[in-house]
Computed example of a mutant assay.
Amino acid sequence: MTDSDYINSKQQKADREYRKKIQSDEEKRKERNRKSKYRTAKSFINSDATREELEEFQGLIKKNLEK
């Protein structure tokens, strides 16, 4: 299927309806966004973070746990 075939196709309409459906439930959307942020943070920490950044995160976590 080329891009021009996709425009106004049944698949495009189905995709649009699916996106509308999954975005309509606010709580599910918030949870999906939260999980996405969690995965991004975890991936960053495990693969790219420097020691300095890890220490900064450690302080932020400690501060949040004290609330």
Rank of each mutant, 00 (worst) to 15 (best):
K67C: 07
R32T: 08
S36F: 05
E31F: 04
E56L: 11
M1R: 13
K30V: 01
K10I: 04
I22H: 05
K63A: 15
E66S: 15
S43G: 02
E55F: 09
N64W: 00
Q11P: 00
Q11T: 09
R19Y: 15
K21N: 04
E53C: 02
Y18K: 13
Q23T: 13
R16F: 10
R34I: 06
I7C: 06
D25A: 01
K21M: 08
Q11E: 13
K63S: 12
K10Q: 10
R29D: 06
Q11D: 09
S47Q: 09
E53W: 05
Y18V: 07
R29P: 00
S4K: 15
K63W: 00
R34D: 05
N33D: 12
K13W: 05
N33M: 13
D15T: 02
Y18H: 13
S47V: 05
S47N: 10
R34E: 05
S47H: 11
E52W: 01
S4V: 14
A49P: 00
I45C: 04
D48E: 12
K35D: 05
K21A: 07
Y18M: 09
R29A: 14
K13G: 01
K28H: 05
I7Y: 08
T50K: 02
K28M: 09
K63P: 00
N46V: 04
K10D: 14
E56T: 07
T50Q: 02
S47K: 12
I45L: 09
E17I: 10
M1K: 13
K37N: 11
I7D: 04
